[in-house]
């Protein structure tokens, strides 16, 4: 399976699983993130963690003055990633342009919206904007 095909499968599986009757604990995403805001950074992916209940991507951003900032992004569940064969598509040590909904508590944590990898392709895994006429 081609990586990008696999990626699309992931997203479908994520949605499918999120649509199924809830069987496990869950917290409202807005209890943790400012879902109406978008922030971004460019950083090197330092770790991809296949953990429950949400996969995590870790990045290190180098500011203009040379200081380092670490970021932790949350996304889909690992079972969905694995079912789609997407475990090895993320390239540790490579730069990514990332956009995300920021954590409400101000930590360098976010719910990932998009990740643009070194090949220039963009993965978008988020929720529709309910005010976007295209979605209604």
């Amino acid at each position: 399976m081609k990586p990008w095909t696999a990626c699309s499968v992931l997203a479908a599986v994520v949605l499918a699983l999120s649509t199924a009757p809830p069987a496990v604990a869950h917290h409202a995403i807005q209890a943790e993130y400012e879902m109406g805001q978008t922030k971004g950074f460019t950083g090197v992916m330092t770790r991809f963690a296949m953990i429950n209940p949400h996969c995590r991507w870790f990045f290190e951003e180098t500011k203009a003055d040379g200081t380092k900032v670490t970021w932790e992004m949350s996304g889909a569940g690992p079972q969905a990633l694995r079912a789609a064969g997407l475990v090895r598509i993320f390239q540790i040590g490579q730069p990514y342009e990332v956009t995300f909904a920021p954590a409400k508590n101000g930590a360098n944590v976010g719910r990932v919206r998009t990740m643009k990898g070194p090949d220039g392709k963009v993965i978008t895994l988020f929720h529709e904007d309910p005010t976007d006429p295209l979605n209604n």
Binding site: C7, V9, A11, A16, Q79, K121, T124
Partner: peptide, 20 residues
Amino acid sequence: TGGGDLKPDESGNITVLSRG
């Protein structure tokens, strides 16, 4: 066990937004 056959767009990008 999940699965499917979605295709990327012509640029290779993937955009999947959960419906609400």
